[in-house]
Computed example of a mutant assay.
Amino acid sequence: MTSLRHNTEPRDTYLDAARDCILDVGWRRTTLTEVARRAGVSRMTIYRTWSDMPQLLSDLMTREWGGVVADALADEDPDTSTVERLVGDIVGTVQRLRENELFIRIVDLDPELILPYLFSRRGRSQDAILELTVNALTEAQAAGEVRQGNPVLMARSMLLAAHGFVLSAHTMVDDAVSLDELDGELRLALTRGLLP
């Protein structure tokens, strides 16, 4: 997947520089000083925005994953049913995350960066995805297109299911099962879980 560049604000330029650093040398070898050098600004300019690398990484991941979701939503087919669109958005996001070069680099070199969002707390991107999903479920329930139930619980369950398909699907692929077939099973499971 190509870089999600926004470059309308200086902050985005700094995040782009951080992204490039992480792609080149990994998280552990990326410093605020190197980000400043690549962005063509002073260290103090970067330090005024982020006091440390974890804060910068948090903002970078929020922007990057938000762009992945936006790309998935942009591919919606207006001629499909609400359930098909919602499931398509989730499966599309899963697929795009697995292909995202920053995500791949982090998982390959610095997987511990992902662990807090799996074991300790939700991140801003996860909360944004949940909010979108809850809103879509609530509207679809009101229209009778999705089964009744707590939309917050349903959205969280769907996100938990998607986590495994983002992070571990490759461990289940071999000569007997392809990645496309696994994604088809995710689509089927989500669809059947939503239908009235």
Rank of each mutant, 00 (worst) to 15 (best):
M1C: 00
T2P: 14
S3Y: 03
L4D: 00
H6T: 03
N7H: 03
T13G: 12
Y14P: 13
D16Q: 03
D16K: 04
A17N: 15
A17L: 12
A18M: 04
A18Q: 04
I22C: 06
L23N: 09
D24T: 12
R28C: 01
R29V: 08
T30R: 08
T33K: 13
T33C: 12
E34W: 05
E34F: 05
V35E: 10
R37P: 08
R37C: 15
R38L: 03
R38H: 13
A39D: 12
G40L: 05
V41Y: 05
R43C: 13
R43G: 12
T45S: 12
Y47P: 05
T49R: 11
T49N: 12
P54L: 08
P54I: 05
L56S: 04
R63I: 08
G66A: 00
G66W: 01
D71V: 02
D71M: 06
D77T: 00
T80Q: 15
T80M: 12
S81V: 02
V83F: 02
R85I: 07
L86C: 07
V87G: 10
V87F: 09
G88F: 14
G88C: 14
D89K: 13
D89G: 07
V91D: 09
E99V: 02
E99P: 01
N100W: 04
D108G: 00
D108F: 03
L109N: 02
L113Y: 06
L115K: 11
F119S: 11
R122P: 02
R124M: 10
S125K: 01
Q126M: 06
D127M: 13
A128F: 11
I129Y: 00
I129S: 05
I129Q: 09
I129N: 04
L130Q: 12
E131P: 09
T138V: 12
E139W: 07
A143H: 06
V146E: 04
N150M: 04
N150D: 14
L153I: 10
L153K: 10
M154N: 01
A155F: 09
S157Y: 12
L159R: 01
L160Q: 05
A162M: 05
G164R: 05
F165M: 14
F165S: 08
F165G: 02
V166S: 10
V166M: 13
L167N: 01
L167V: 10
S168Q: 07
S168P: 06
S168D: 14
H170K: 10
V173Y: 03
D175W: 10
D175A: 11
V177H: 15
V177Y: 15
S178M: 13
S178N: 09
L179K: 07
D180T: 12
E181D: 13
L190Y: 07
T191A: 09
G193F: 02
L194K: 04
L194P: 00
L194H: 03
L195R: 10
L195W: 07
P196H: 13
